[in-house]
Design a protein around this nucleic acid. Sequence first.
RNA 1: GGGCGCGUAGCUCAGUGGGAGAGCAUCCGCCUUACAAGCGGAGGGUCAGGGGUUCGAAACCCUUCGCGCCCACCA
Length: 900
Amino acid sequence: MTDATEQTAPMHPHAVEPAPAPGSGDQVASGDHAAALASRYQPGEVEGRRYAQWVAGGYFTADPASDREPFTIVIPPPNVTGSLHIGHALDHTIQDSLVRRKRMQGFAALWLPGMDHAGIATQNVVERQLAGQGLSRHDLGRDAFVERVWEWKAESGGAILGQMRRLGDSVDWSRERFTMDDGLSRAVQTIFKKLYDDGLVYQAERIINWCPRCLTALSDIEVEHSDDDGELVSIRYGDGAGGDAIVVATTRAETMLGDTAVAVHPDDERYRHLVGTEVEVPLTGRRIPIVADEHVDPAFGTGAVKVTPAHDPNDFEIGQRHGLPSLTIMDERAVITAHGPFQGLDRFEARPAIVAALRAQGRIVAEKRPYVHAVGHCSRCGTTVEPRLSLQWFVSTGPLAKAAGDAVRDGRVKVEPPELAKRYFAWVDNMHDWCISRQLWWGHRIPIWYGPDGEVVCVGPDDQPPGGVGWRQDEDVLDTWFSSGLWPFSTLGWPDETADLAKFYPTSVLVTGYDILFFWVARMMMFGLYAMDGQAPFHTVALHGMVRDQHGKKMSKSFGNVVDPLDWIERFGADATRFTLARGANPGGDVPISEEWCENSRNFCNKLWNATRFALINGATVAGQLPAPAELSDVDRWILSRLQDTVRQVDAQFEAYEFAKVCDLLFHFAWDDVCDWYLELTKPVLAAGGADADRTRRVLGHVLDNLLRLLHPVMPFVTDELWSVLTGAETVVVADWPVVDGAYRDPSAERRIEALQRVVTEVRRFRADQGLRPSQRVAARMSGLDGHGIDDHEALIRALVRLDEPGQAFGATAVLAVSGDVTVELDTSGAIDIGAERARLTRDLAAAEKELTQCRTKLGNEAFMGKAPAPVVDKIKARLATAEADLERITAALAALPSA
RNA sequence: GGGCGCGUAGCUCAGUGGGAGAGCAUCCGCCUUACAAGCGGAGGGUCAGGGGUUCGAAACCCUUCGCGCCCACCA
């Protein structure tokens, strides 16, 4: 462990000098400080003040000229339209913990904040606002509408930034970015042109997912499938007179208006004779061919499929294979445009109308039958997606996705937890081309210009758009995820060769929920590798799960179980909220939370608060050298050794993204080791005064100092407040992260104090069983402590369990046999509850006997003795010895019990 | 339809080949001079069922049952 003087000294250019120690080099926190601390932690009084100090101190501002090793995280940019929900709070807590620790470890740490313009989602929000005033975006016109969205962005985005401050996010505000700002728009245009020039974006007429309400194309990932109830109807095509009738089954009868073929499987004997002939499409009078296609499943329905190339992706494929025409029969709002009685009907109105008309003609051969099938819905508005044939822009994902997969496959990018890489591969290895054009107004407009004579020109960021009569720019904008995919380098200044890009790219770790592994992570991988010469955008992808309620249920408004992070921050504090989330965050796992657990986290904050109060009241010292190991008492050695072990384990768990384990380790070290045992053990020493007390004050200060540092990444506010009071320095934000110092590891001291704890616990247990009030002092005689090397600690033990030295008239009435040869005789003036004690001893006896039997059985098993490794056998032998001794002790104690 | 995962204390979850754990909840006793947002003590589990591998299984394999998630263009 580094020495205390160094630890409090500023180590970063931004760090503020600690308050000069008055008079001497040693700085002893006085009782005055403690008096300043209320008996409870009140987060509201601390958080705003601390955050303002951090920002004013410039601690979060990263320096690209620094010679320190970089550590970079780019924030998953929240949707500018939304507000931060508890899932963001989890995501941010994890990122903040990582970046705060690295900052303390001396890295040039950058956490880059920003927001996403979220094209379709944001446009929808503003359109709804307009609708409230009876307006549509067309009433405003494109420019005015976009202007309106920018206004909303300023309002909504500001709220998000405020929430981030409340959470304590240590982001570099000087580098805040927005996907629509000038720099990022330039990046978008640059990569679009590069892709275009490389032939990796193209325009094509294809069947795409279309939202008839949003009136735009959607990519595959913007479509959510659900199993919906449908009805399968069987319709007879053809007149049947010449045997050319054929029955098809469909859930979408309305599309028959656009049928251009009927398809059967080539091997289907039932229909072989019909292949190559024509049938008449009912209601239309059109005659269409019957074709043979492998895609048809002869076992499904009637084995014959109606083919509507313009309104079904499969049918489109079949159409391509057989050179069929595509008949578009619906407009962009999914209203029937085909001439006839159905014109003007919505698709869902047309369906029953057409079925009724068919029935009237006797064409329905099998009545409607319920049929559950997967139906796509717009992920933004829920409207049933309509496959639509239209001219759109696509990214050719083949080579990009291959590279994205390889980067993880060959280990250049690690996925945590590794199991989730399977999902990633499943995605990138089966990716379709990506439809990137959107018929929206809010977004990056596609930099393609069309000339009067059919010219198509892609315009780069530094190019002058073609002027002249008849030239016009493509009306569409790009998919939001197109710009999000550039985030790790566009935010650092790309395409310019900036100092930030050189220093902070590739980023260190990407933290996000597994739910957007496909949406976002895969796209960043594709674009990062492509734009940055094969350098992946991050070294590690650390995935967490979704926040859930205390029963593991998804949070949703309809369940009424949604937690607003600001609500918890108000009521329990930001640190409690963060600790609750971090404590549940196992890698890749969902995070259940509840108000009760958050209360517990708040209590933990208060525990730290009061432990520090105790230290201050007792004059804990944080400056100066920690005494050499040889000068330390057993208790000092024990707690310092426990601290070393905690530092070691916390580091290991941090590196493994095991946030739940980090929290668990620190919680137990702080509450059990430090508060429940160590502070109690220091009380008699401090009360006695003298050199021992002086030394204890130094160790106590050191332990708390380091504990607060260790907790700071997860609980930044309370630790900063306490640490600055304890040390007199400005802030723990840029203090050194604790380092393991092997000189203070002391397993034998740990064993001795553990023995002491066993004795204390046994006496307490007896006292509790006997109903002895804590305040009641009992005379006692102890022996056998030397067997554990704790004979020096008899006074300490007596202090902890209120046992007096035996007086003149000592008459033991109870003998506790603790462990080894330790016995404690207590003078309870004959007032012991023999029944309770007998019950206790009988239970212990049974446990010891069980243990004894188990061990003997094993050791008597030749196969075990022959094959089990020696250390395992030795361990069983040791257990046997302990069990035998326990049995003997307990038996003796039972025998010594006065008969009732 | 394909893929992935889960089932351990009342609840939520750790534990992945050698003595069943944590937090919360429960019960008992305490205002013991940092903290009642606290302190001390206690109870509670055939590790979903079955089979197998092994000297040894909560863990590895097979299987049954139950649950969840992701992906998906069979009308």
